[in-house]
């Protein structure tokens, strides 16, 4: 399965990365080479083997339903690039301009 530039552009879109043409070119080559090494996995006969999601046998962990305080609003907003003091500010997601 050779990876193409079109694949790389598609995956970049999925990953929300804005790659330059030059980055697309180098990543196509690098990912192609890495996938070549990883390809041994596809050749293994693993029929009937259970996939592992977690290294240790774990079950759901329950805890007491006790209210604890989370981050205060000002703490949660402290590292935000843009806030109005009460919420994160983002660019308009739907059209129509100012909704206030």
């Amino acid at each position: 399965m050779a990876i193409t530039e079109a694949d790389v552009r598609h995956v970049a879109m999925l990953a929300r990365l804005a790659l330059t043409d030059q980055q697309v070119g180098s990543l196509t080559a690098e990912l192609g080479s890495l996938l070549g090494h990883i390809d041994e996995l596809r050749k293994l006969d693993l029929d009937g083997v259970e996939p592992t999601a977690h290294p240790l046998a774990m079950t759901n962990r329950m805890r007491e339903d006790v209210v604890v305080h989370g981050l205060a609003r000002e703490e949660a907003l402290r590292n935000a690039p843009d806030t109005d003091g009460a919420a994160f500010v983002v660019p308009a997601i739907t059209g129509g301009g100012d909704v206030s």
Binding site: M1, I3, D7, H10, V11, L14, L31, L35, I38, L41, R42, L44, L46, V49, E50, P51, T52, A53, P55
Partner: peptide, 20 residues
Amino acid sequence: YALSAGYYDAYYGQAQKART
């Protein structure tokens, strides 16, 4: 890429089995 539609079983699925 490994998690994307069409490649999930070939890569991620196989890797989790190899992990077993």
